[in-house]
Design a protein around this nucleic acid. Sequence first.
DNA 1: GCTAGACCTGACGTCGACGTCAGCTTCAAG
DNA 2: CTTGAAGCTGACGTCGACGTCAGGTCTAGC
Lengths: 121, 121
Amino acid sequence: MRIGEAARSLGLSLRTLRYYEERGLVRPARGEGGQRWYAEDDLRTVRHVRTLLAAGLGTAVIAELLPCMRDDDGHPAPACAELAGRLTQERDRISGAIADLESARGTLETIIAAAPAAAVG
Amino acid sequence: MRIGEAARSLGLSLRTLRYYEERGLVRPARGEGGQRWYAEDDLRTVRHVRTLLAAGLGTAVIAELLPCMRDDDGHPAPACAELAGRLTQERDRISGAIADLESARGTLETIIAAAPAAAVG
DNA sequence: GCTAGACCTGACGTCGACGTCAGCTTCAAG
DNA sequence: CTTGAAGCTGACGTCGACGTCAGGTCTAGC
């Protein structure tokens, strides 16, 4: 599929998809006139990218990790070993972020619970 | 205490503290010569700010929430009611963010577990 | 009262993930 | 073969939370 359909299918903008390619995260094929051609595999890659971006990873780091996520049968598969260090490091960072978020959520809930019942919604 | 000591005590930069004041998050007193004077209460406020920033809230939103967090005895107390809507909204956003992070962490752990045991650290 | 260090107020720079605009090319339909 | 939609490549703009530099002021010790 071309970039327009890919973007709609993923719920992203054209700019975003081009940006991901610019950062080396996706490498869609090119047609005669130079137009990008996205295969299903590329869409899966983009979804992985989105997941990792949402985790707070930067595009540079993701670019390193992606080769370790080559799909065999639909889910991430191994590949890299030397990146294990960085991976666990990122995982720990994410765990910390989760803890921070839970702490903040607790704070908010304290306020919510304490606030006189009013316009809740 | 003056801004330097406050910054050291909080582990933040001078710029950060001035920035928080600029955004209306803290209002330290001023001395004769116009120098900022941070009371313990101000430090607590800054810590709240940090917690909420870590939760992904912006300084503008935090500026609205802070009045609802006036400490009575050390922990957040109620105050605002009409903000309940925004509060629950932010809480839900945070819950979503946590879910995203957990998903991403799961992805990373899958890769880590699948990777041949190597330099793990 | 002199000096060094701590502060003050602008104001411009940064970084990351895009948005947006400009000008040109390619594709699909009639 | 024309035309409008869809793509393409730069390249500058944005937003948020600060970093950093410049140039003047305040404070504390001697």
